Computed example of a mutant assay.
Amino acid sequence: MKRNIVIATLTAAALAGGTVAAFAVGDDEKAAAARPGAGGANVQVVDDRDDDATDDRSDDAAEDRTAVRAGGVTAAEAIAAALRHTSGTVVSAELDDDGGDAGTWGVDVVRDDGAEYGVEVSADGKVLDAQRDTDEESDSEDRAELAALKGAKFDARDAALAAAAKGAVTEVGGDDENGAVVWGVETVKDGVTSEWAVALDTGKVTKVTAD
């Protein structure tokens, strides 16, 4: 995570005759990021870019999402709002961190008749829009994953609640982990993004490590 550190040094010396000299050196650049609270308080992800043109580190893009600010509904609350509007099985929910839509949630719901809807939930928990996905294409793997998610003892909301102890949940969705269907959950805590696998049958949360 890139941090802009404000450094201030103040030196004061009392000289003979009551003369005082003071020197201060300050950096005008200031940065602040409120960390998400316990229990998975929702976040809006914003960019924290280095203004130094000489900084050419290759991992800039990955670090852009490390500054967060608290506010808005949690993943679990967004999922609940989407289901109140469009009943079915939530297969994914993701916090939008782009431009004017930042802070809203995109929740994908598959209804009992198989129709898939994208439901947009605002930062204050209101459903803004719900559109049917007309480009529905699925193969045998997709159908098997959907069947597993529909029959899961722990649904997307449960997975979000389980992973909230690890940080602010920014994404949850069906995933394949070592050949097994799980809930894949992304969290942010203290500027660090982590990925977790939540078991469909037990709700056990396991950290996902890079291959």
Rank of each mutant, 00 (worst) to 15 (best):
Val46Met: 05
Val169Ser: 06
Glu177Gln: 07
Gly71Glu: 14
Arg143Ser: 06
Ala165Glu: 14
Arg57Lys: 05
Glu94Cys: 04
Gly72Ala: 09
Val198Asn: 02
Arg65Lys: 14
Ala14Met: 05
Asp155Ser: 03
Asp64Val: 08
Asp139Thr: 06
Val25His: 13
Asn4Arg: 12
Lys153Met: 02
Arg3Tyr: 15
Gly125Glu: 07
Ala197Phe: 05
Gly191Cys: 02
Val68His: 07
Gly40Tyr: 13
Thr134Gln: 04
Val25Thr: 15
Asp158Asn: 01
Val107Tyr: 00
Thr11Leu: 10
Arg3Cys: 04
Thr19Ile: 12
Glu120Trp: 08
Ala62Met: 04
Val198His: 00
Ala199Thr: 12
Ser92Thr: 10
Thr187Pro: 07
Tyr117Pro: 09
Asp96Cys: 10
Val107Asn: 08
Ser87Ala: 13
Ala67Ser: 12
Gly191Phe: 06
Ala61Asn: 10
Thr54Ala: 14
Arg84Asp: 15
Thr11His: 05
Ala80Leu: 00
Ala32Ser: 13
Gly26Phe: 14
Val45Asp: 00
Val182Ala: 01
Asp108Ile: 02
Ala24Asp: 03
Val182Arg: 03
Trp105Ser: 00
Lys204Asn: 13
Arg49Leu: 06
Leu146Met: 11
His85Arg: 09
Asp108Pro: 14
Lys204Trp: 00
Asn178Tyr: 06
Gly151Lys: 08
Arg65Ala: 09
Gly106Leu: 11
Ala156Asn: 01
Ala31Arg: 11
Glu63Met: 01
Thr209Trp: 02
Arg3Met: 10
Asp211Arg: 14
Arg65Phe: 13
Ala162Asn: 08
Arg69Asn: 11
Gly203Asn: 12
Asn42Trp: 06
Ala62Arg: 08
Asn178Ala: 14
Val192Tyr: 05
Trp196Tyr: 14
Asp175Gly: 10
Gly72Val: 11
Ala70Glu: 08
Thr89Gly: 03
Arg35Ser: 08
Val107Pro: 14
Glu63Val: 06
Trp183Gly: 01
Arg57Asn: 07
Ala115Lys: 09
Asp135Tyr: 12
Glu29Met: 09
Leu10Arg: 13
Val208Pro: 00
Lys189Ile: 02
Thr11Pro: 00
Thr66Tyr: 07
Ala168Glu: 06
Ala80Arg: 10
Val185Trp: 04
Ala180Lys: 15
Thr170Trp: 05
Val73Trp: 03
Ala163Tyr: 01
Ala123Val: 12
Ala22Arg: 07
Gly72Arg: 02
Val45Thr: 13
Val73Lys: 03
Val107Met: 08
Ala102Trp: 04
Glu186Asn: 11
Lys204Ile: 09
Ala159Lys: 06
Glu137Asn: 12
Val43Ile: 13
Pro36Val: 11
Ala24Ser: 13
Ala62His: 09
Asn4Ile: 14
Arg57Ile: 09
